[in-house]
Amino acid sequence: MAADVTLAAPIASSAQPSSFAEFWASFRENKGAVAGLVVLSLIVLTAIFADVLAPHSPLEQFRDAVKLPPAWYEGGNWAFPLGTDALGRDMLSRIMHGARYSLFIGLSVMAVSIVCGVGLGLLAAFSGGWLDTAISRVMDLIVAIPSLVLAILIIAILQNPSLEKTIVAVTVVSLPRYVRLVRASALSEMGKDYVTAAKVAGVASLRLMLRTVLPNCLAPVIVQAALGVSDAILEAAALGFLGLGAQPPTPEWGAMVGDGREFIRSEPWIVTLPGLAILVTVISINLFGDGLRDALDPKLKRS
């Protein structure tokens, strides 16, 4: 397999192997990461095609089939493969649609955190002085408060919990990691000779910040972002469980666990299945993120 590749490459093109090919070769060595990527892809596809794949509407209540167990148990019905919840809604359809919400929260938190985190981190590193101190201390302050408590506090300040407000709260909570990471790597890059050389060549601050320094800080940020998605999903699920996230009847996984918790002894699948969905998603993202780190971080790379 490896021999084919090395033989074919020089014939196909004399150019250097692209950075993506290099990344992929290093990534696929990690079996766990590839498994994570596969599972994650399945979840993403499920989320995208939930309307087509789901057997029922996630909101439709089947009054004659309330609290049905999964189909392979006694009393189950193959019309509802994973059973139904307390209101007779199909669990499978709700979990499939729930993937949309969880991934949407995870990705939007990640996107907003990256943009804000990179901006604030670079600003702190480049300005120095009081602005740097101000940004760094505010981030320390956010870290000092337990994240779930702070998220609840933000929801309380914004009033009327909803999916959007969950995103805002989780973003604020996860921001310090990005800001610190970007600031630290920007500061270490700025001490290097190529930045001085660019300054001497007359490169002005904005270009220096975005074109010279930023690309060299991005690898750890990408890894952090991948792992940050899973943290955001967990955080949002916790808020949903407490009733401070997505509101009923939205099929958000955390809220589903919260709604079903009174049936944990009698009808455990109502709680277990959405919880399992959260678990699988988070694990696959973490495996993928670990593989990403191994492949992108030159310090961990085997030679």
Binding site: K192, D193, Y194, T196, A197, A198, V200, A201, T212, P215, N216
Partner: peptide, 14 residues
């Protein structure tokens, strides 16, 4: 303009 001692640090790797 300036030329530095360490040619491994004076060029932007990206």
């Amino acid at each position: 303009q300036i030329i530095f001692q360490n040619p491994y640090g004076s060029l932007n790797p990206r």
